[in-house]
């Protein structure tokens, strides 16, 4: 079964770049793009009881309209008991703000915080 990655980012350009980059790293991976946290959270809720549908990784942008990364993490917290150890969340931001990084790493559900652009090595790490 192919592994699945959620890319939550309102920037369609970056979505495109990521899609191609990940494909390069591992062509088997299925990428599901979401425009904001709310859409991703809705999807997660709908598939929470079907583990085969769950993504292995969520790449989460911070700054998004409607529901930003932080709000998504709050929502994810509510689902965490079921999903916490099954899904690796990576915060991906163009912000170099250290406060954002600290805040992200203090969240137990966040595997790592990475700045755009992601290198091939970083992508390899995430995919594996």
């Amino acid at each position: 079964m192919a592994r699945k990655i959620f890319v939550v980012d309102d920037d369609s350009t970056y979505q495109l770049i990521l899609k191609h980059s990940i494909k390069k790293a591992d062509p088997e991976i299925v990428i599901e793009p979401y425009k904001n946290g709310a859409l991703a959270a809705e999807k997660l809720k709908s598939i929470v009881n079907t583990p085969e549908e769950l993504p292995a990784v969520i790449l989460l942008d911070i700054n998004m309209p409607v529901m930003d990364g932080w709000q998504f993490l709050d929502n994810f917290d509510i689902l965490a008991p079921e999903l916490g150890d099954k899904i690796a969340i990576y915060m991906i931001s163009s912000s170099l703000d250290l406060r954002d990084k600290d805040k992200a790493l203090n969240n137990p559900n966040v595997r790592d915080y990475m700045c755009k652009p992601l290198t091939i090595e970083q992508l390899q790490t995430i995919v594996n």
């Binding site: 920037d11 350009t13 770049i17 390069k24 163009s94 755009k116 652009p117």
Partner: peptide, 25 residues
């Protein structure tokens, strides 16, 4: 301002960088 510089401006440059890499390949 710094947020703009670090996020919004960077967002675009990062995208351009990424796109250029994709273009090469």
């Amino acid at each position: 301002f710094s947020y703009i510089v670090s996020h919004n401006l960077r967002m675009h440059t990062v995208n351009i960088q990424g796109l250029l890499t994709l273009l090469d390949d």
